[in-house]
Amino acid sequence: MKTTVRMKFTKKGRAKYISHLDLMRCFQRCIRRAELPIAYSEGFHPHMQIVFAAALSLGFESDYEVIELGLSEALSFDEVQSRMQAVLPDGIDVISCYEPKHKMGQIAYAEYDIILPCQDSEKLLLQWNEFISQEKIIVEKKTKRGFREMDLKELTECLSEETRENALVLKLRLPAGSTVNVNPALLVEEFRKNEQVLFDFPKYCRKKLLCNEKTEFF
């Protein structure tokens, strides 16, 4: 009996340098190692029925990656989870397996934690507040046909800011759908354009994927 299982997993540590294309190949090999009864497409070059939700930028960590697996025979969620967990590389851990609830196309937003390492986090926070309370934050975004202007201000939702000893931690919600999609690095690099703003190599972690109504994507 054919079934579809969704698997939520992390992508952390060294695994964050696996590109999206490489991740696909990595999962194909892990599925073989796990000997899952994966379904194949019909046709001359059959390929595994697996689909990833919302590609993640190279170098980002994530607590919320989703893959959908088409299975040719039913297997309990626990079984899928434990077999896959046993073969996945370090940094990729299965969080849960479940039945698909939403369509992949319903993904509309993503939430991120952004860590900006710095000497003076209070000062950086002030600068951030100043930056984000501007009326408009216009950036150029590369599209298939040249550049397009985009106002990041109206697209960004700040959920929280927190100062730590040597870092500013931002929680942001940004569009992540197929029509509008904002990479948080775009915003952070725009912030950094001010020469007074000083922080080290920023760290990004995707915390959640949300549907249109800002409910969690399952």
């Binding site: 060294r14 340098y17 490489d22 990595c26 190692r33 190279l58 590389p89 190599f201």
Partner: peptide, 19 residues
């Protein structure tokens, strides 16, 4: 190396962690 990896081709070759 972390801040450098995103500036080079195929960064995963420099970080290990393969199965």
């Amino acid at each position: 190396i972390e801040p450098l990896l995103l500036r080079v081709q195929k960064p995963s070759q420099y970080i290990g962690g393969e199965t």
